[in-house]
Amino acid sequence: MAKVAVMDDLDEKTTAIVDAARTTFLARGFDAASMDQIALTAGVSKRTVYNRFRSKEELFGAAITETCRHLLPVNVSDIEDTLPPDELIRALSRVFVKGILEPEALSLRRIAAFEAERTPAIGKAYIEHGPASMVAECAPILARLAARGHFEIDDPEAAIWQLGALITEPLHTRVLMGDMPSDLDAAIDHQVENGVAAFIKIYSPKN
């Protein structure tokens, strides 16, 4: 399962290519975006792009990875050490929901959904570099909380998927379809509070 990459780990040209890819995909969509245009925007040769990314699908995955790095705080371990378990989950959930409702994240989700039927690799890249990668990042947090007796969780990854659904729906689908609440921040707070409360109810120790 892919791990969310950090741009600081990439060399200068690769960083430029990924940034150019994000800009180009957002402006033109996947199908109309060309490797030539991405190379031109990045200020590198087409050969340089292909030396680092074997296909446009792989580059789209890199663009998703870069977007995902904004969805969680950098120092999650510091937050984990300073907040009670319930507040930790609320804090991370709020940051995550705000992140996926950012215009760039919504646009990339729409592009992936539109292209996935005729190009399944795009849908697979979105899942692998987006939701599945975030699950892989967050599941160990739940595992540690469960090990300390705060929750009863046998499958942390399945629990993270469930938490994701609880804290995002129906708000995410509404916003994705253009039904923007008049007060987005209040809608996020309401969605997160209800979702986290349901999650805690499901996974709190029964004894």
Rank of each mutant, 00 (worst) to 15 (best):
A2G: 06
A2C: 14
V4L: 15
V4Q: 09
V6Q: 14
V6F: 10
D8I: 15
D9W: 07
D11S: 09
E12I: 01
K13Y: 02
K13N: 10
K13S: 12
T14G: 00
T15Q: 15
T15M: 08
A16R: 08
I17N: 00
I17Y: 01
V18P: 00
V18T: 05
R22V: 12
R22P: 01
A27C: 06
R28K: 14
G29I: 00
A32L: 13
M35N: 08
T41E: 12
G43C: 04
G43Q: 07
K46E: 09
R47V: 12
Y50F: 11
N51S: 09
F53E: 03
K56Q: 05
C68H: 05
R69Y: 08
H70R: 15
P73D: 12
V74G: 12
D81G: 13
L83Q: 07
L83A: 06
L83T: 01
P85K: 04
A91Q: 13
A91C: 14
R94C: 03
V97S: 05
L101H: 06
E102S: 13
E104R: 07
A105L: 02
S107P: 03
S107K: 10
L108H: 12
R110L: 03
I111M: 09
A112K: 03
F114Y: 08
P120T: 08
G123K: 07
K124I: 14
A125Q: 03
A125Y: 01
A125R: 05
I127S: 08
H129N: 03
G130Y: 01
M134D: 05
V135N: 06
A136F: 10
E137Q: 15
P140I: 14
P140A: 14
I141L: 15
R144Y: 14
R144G: 15
L145K: 05
A146L: 11
A147M: 10
F151E: 06
I153L: 12
D155A: 11
D155V: 04
I160A: 10
Q162C: 06
Q162V: 07
L163W: 03
L166W: 07
T168P: 01
E169V: 02
E169N: 06
P170T: 01
T173E: 10
V175W: 03
L176M: 03
L176A: 02
M177R: 13
G178A: 01
D179C: 06
M180W: 01
L184F: 07
A186T: 08
D189F: 04
H190M: 13
N194I: 10
I200C: 06
Y203T: 07
N207S: 15
